[in-house]
């Protein structure tokens, strides 16, 4: 298995010489004229354990930062948002809605489902931008709120601080992004009587009104019968 190695020996003869590595004792030693070829180090048990520990720690950190989402607030049948995005959106909803009374899990699920349905009709590019925005909220907690934990793991106060960081950011796009999220949440929120009542809004003047009968008949006549296909 052992074979002589080193950059000079592995290069084909026509290759230009590799310039010496800049700085570093290891680089200097490798290029020293009298350096003897070294045998590769064997992976000792101790090193193996260290490496395993490091991999496990990195995996744990990765899982902590990017996995293990609480899915209790997620409604079934989401068509646009993935589970992780939906969990982040749920945390955003909880933070954006008025805190008193705190939104119930059922309310958050209802709003999530409404937002998901709304996104279904948006151009794919905008939905993609929203996905990145949600990931930015989730993992940008240090930059926007001086927090080490991701957004979904923060308490209410921490989440508010992070979104405030977005709102007051010097980055115009961050402010615009936060505005977009806020708009989406309130579009889904202000569509029923309890939400209307909380701000003294009257809501629809005549809910379910089917239009003046005379004009309804005229509009119905304009529409082709269901079985008919377009043509002359």
């Amino acid at each position: 298995m052992e074979q002589p190695h080193g950059p000079q020996q592995q290069r084909p003869p026509s290759s230009p010489p590799v310039p010496p590595a800049a700085g570093g004792p290891a680089a200097a030693a490798a290029d020293a004229p009298h350096a003897a070829p070294r045998a590769p180090r064997r992976l000792s048990r101790r090193r193996l354990l260290k490496l395993g520990g490091l991999v496990a720690a990195a995996g744990g950190l990765g899982l902590y930062r990017c996995g293990l989402y609480d899915e209790r607030l997620l409604p079934p049948g989401l068509r646009v948002l993935g589970r992780r995005e939906a969990a982040i959106a749920a945390a955003v909803i909880e933070t954006v809605l008025p805190p008193e009374p705190p939104p119930s899990p059922e309310r958050v699920r209802t709003l999530l489902a409404a937002i998901d349905a709304y996104l279904l009709g948006l151009p794919a590019e905008q939905v993609e931008q929203l996905r990145w925005l949600l990931l930015g909220v989730e993992h940008g907690t240090f930059w926007f709120g001086a927090r080490l934990e991701r957004f979904t793991r923060l308490g209410a106060r921490g989440r508010t601080d992070v979104l405030t960081g977005w709102q007051r950011s010097r980055l115009g796009l961050a402010r615009a992004g936060l505005r977009g999220l806020v708009a989406l949440v309130f579009l889904a929120h202000y569509r029923d009587a309890p939400a209307f009542a909380a701000i003294g809004y009257g809501g629809p003047l005549a809910p379910g009104f089917a239009g003046p009968p005379a004009s309804a008949a005229r509009y119905a006549r304009l529409l082709a019968p269901p079985e008919r296909e377009p043509g002359w």
């Binding site: 954006v96 809605l97 805190p99 979104l163 806020v182 309130f186 909380a198 809004y201």
Partner: peptide, 25 residues
Amino acid sequence: AHPAGAAATLGAFGAEHARLMRDYA
């Protein structure tokens, strides 16, 4: 603007949104 439009324009959220929208009427 109707409520969602007004809330989006004001751009506030959480307690601040609640405070501003208390005066919506």
